[in-house]
Design a protein around this nucleic acid. Structure first.
Lengths: 112, 112
DNA sequence: GTTTGTACTGACAAATTTGTCAGTACAAAG
DNA sequence: CTTTGTACTGACAAATTTGTCAGTACAAAC
């Protein structure tokens, strides 16, 4: 990613990228764009992700205001993540990124 | 960034991000969207970048087909980089990313 | 004949991100 | 009463990216 996540770049492109940049963040947002999910449910739906990374990314996305974390007072705990209203403004941007990415994959595969 | 640059993720979002992800790539593309530039000219126009990183990013962008490198046969060498036709398809996506990023910066600053 | 500038490479260190592993609390199931 | 599942933390190792530094070739300026 562009700039270390600790500092906030004043470049808008970097600011945007720092939000979605992370090994699994695109996938997490993609999954959640279908509706809220529990932590373990998300983990099982993303092959290859580890619990540690999932939780780190979820926490960052919550901190950035993109996701909302809701915990039911129960044992064992039940936590549900969903995309916030603010996070919803990100979804169309992701769609455009996705569209270009799809074309790029074709472009790359043609070259081989 | 999403996936190591060496392997090509089949996720379109990751595929797109792997192209623009890199500490300075956004800025480089931003500068070049105004027209071709020489290596040293670019370097001087981007405060903080080192020659090493500039060249590494330029080479990756050339490899991804986003930039074109033109060298004039002269000593001392004169190399000019420009955005390719294919790279031009990326510019509107960057603009959308930039627009969201600008709103996000405001959003963040309001919270402080 | 030393310095300056161009565009670049190689070797390596530092920083950052990602992954691994063990451990927490508590209840229900067996 | 041991195991299972939930959501999570901490310490650390591995991988990856970024930065630092020296060095290349050649011509023109001084």
């Amino acid at each position: 990613m562009a700039v270390s996540k600790k500092e906030m770049s004043q470049c808008p492109i970097d600011a945007m990228l720092s939000v979605i940049d992370g090994r699994w963040k695109g996938t997490i947002l993609w999954r959640l764009s279908d509706g809220p999910m529990r932590t373990g449910e998300l983990r099982r739906s993303i092959p290859g992700i580890t619990e540690r990374m999932l939780i780190r990314h979820l926490q960052e996305l919550v901190q950035d205001g993109i996701l909302i974390r809701r915990q039911e007072a129960a044992v064992p705990p039940c936590v549900r993540y969903s995309i916030s209203k603010y996070g919803m403004t990100l979804v169309p941007v992701l769609e455009i990124i996705c569209t270009w990415g799809r074309k790029h994959l074709q472009h790359v595969n043609r070259a081989m």
